[in-house]
Design a protein around this nucleic acid. Structure first.
Lengths: 219, 219
DNA sequence: GCGTTAAGAAACCCAAGAGTTTCCTAATGG
DNA sequence: CCATTAGGAAACTCTTGGGTTTCTTAACGC
């Protein structure tokens, strides 16, 4: 509808029945809905029939805008370049524990957070099975996050806040610990509520920082 | 062939062509080969055609011994009740870091270890997708392992080797950290060699113990 | 040889899911 | 009214994989 105006400006509307929404708009809408599906049931569990039904459109229209399922997925990844970790403010002089909590975004809203976690879960679960996807999702999500955290580690060591330790190793450790519990949901797992998981995450940060703390005569 | 003798003892061999191997034997052989496949390509990636081909038998025979794919899988899980973690000797007075290295079995042979890790990887990757499997594998593998480690944590705290800390939380932390890197293989991951991964695991144990160490006036 | 059982090869059935096509019904400009 | 484009509904193709069946051949006891 809105593109009618745009079209009109550049030499009259084309013949025939106008599109209900512009392609760009419709793509956005589809990606958003498909995203929910992907995050909910994974790549393999998401069917194009399901996406079409969810969007209230026919497969024909869907395939016109996204010729293949992978295109849809890639569009979602590109769209969803929200970071797993938050960039720390360069001038941050928070206590280290709070700084890490901020980096891991232990403060975001429930809805936002669920989406982010579902994304991470998807990355962990499906990257083995669909190698086509693995690269995109790993390179867009995990690797930048790891680099971000590695940089932070190195900086804290330079400031003598943390004892010397291979920073990338440390970053990986912490990510495995925190995301391990933020993401997994085993059948009979405790740590069901958001509060449980965040408490666990803070425990992880606590032990981690304590284990890496600069001390006069440690161990 | 070997069961000919057994059969003969209990009232003569049955009519017709004898089986090439006894059912029990053949089942064992199939489970062993199927295991490699499951561990290699996952539950979803393993096809019954593939199993039959690998075993050099026909699907008919395969289905006579295992009426469904899940039966085959369950047989493998039951057969494979090898523990993810090693039971610590109750009188262990190793240094704590070595004790943990032993519990995580950072000393086992390469072949054994690959199998164990493949099993853990399978558990982590497929338990979301195939709920039928999730329970078996989680209940047989992850939960006992977590309990084992939790018990060890509690004991070290009683002995004042570790500072007071929710033991199950601590156990989970450490498992996520260690298995996270032992198990994952991302496309562009470093930590490719066994040595790299074990070095990382020891680093994890180091930081973890340091973070939980009993200290006169910690923090 | 004959009845009987084992077992392979290969065709087959069935369901699911990606992707395509056909047919029909809007909506619009001319 | 008519050409033209959008788009839904649904049938269709094709592939994959779990599971079944048919046909044939091999191996035994009698």
């Amino acid at each position: 509808m809105n593109d009618v105006t745009a079209e009109a400006m550049q030499g009259g509307r084309p013949r025939g029945r106008p599109k209900q929404r512009s392609d760009a708009e419709e793509r956005q809408r589809i990606v958003a809905l498909a995203c929910e599906l992907f995050l909910d049931v994974g790549y393999g569990g998401t069917t194009m029939d399901g996406v079409a039904a969810r969007c209230g459109i026919s497969k024909k229209t869907l395939y016109r805008l996204f010729p293949a399922k992978t295109d849809l997925f890639n569009a979602m990844v590109a769209d969803n370049r929200r970071t797993m970790l938050a960039l720390p403010r360069p001038d941050d002089d928070l206590p280290t524990a709070d700084a890490l909590a901020a980096i891991f975004r232990l403060d975001v809203e429930e809805a936002d957070n669920n989406e982010r976690l579902a994304f991470i879960r998807l990355a962990m679960a499906d990257s083995d099975r669909y190698p086509e996807i693995a690269e995109a999702i790993t390179q867009e999500g995990a690797e930048p996050a790891l680099r971000l955290l590695t940089g932070w580690m190195a900086r804290q060591q330079e400031r003598d806040v943390l004892r010397p330790f291979p920073p990338r190793t440390a970053a990986r450790m912490l990510m495995d610990m925190v995301f391990g519990v933020l993401v997994k949901r085993f059948p009979g797992d405790e740590l069901q509520t958001r509060e449980d998981r965040f408490a666990h995450a803070r425990h992880c940060i606590d032990v981690f920082l304590n284990g890496l703390a600069e001390r006069p005569a440690a161990r």
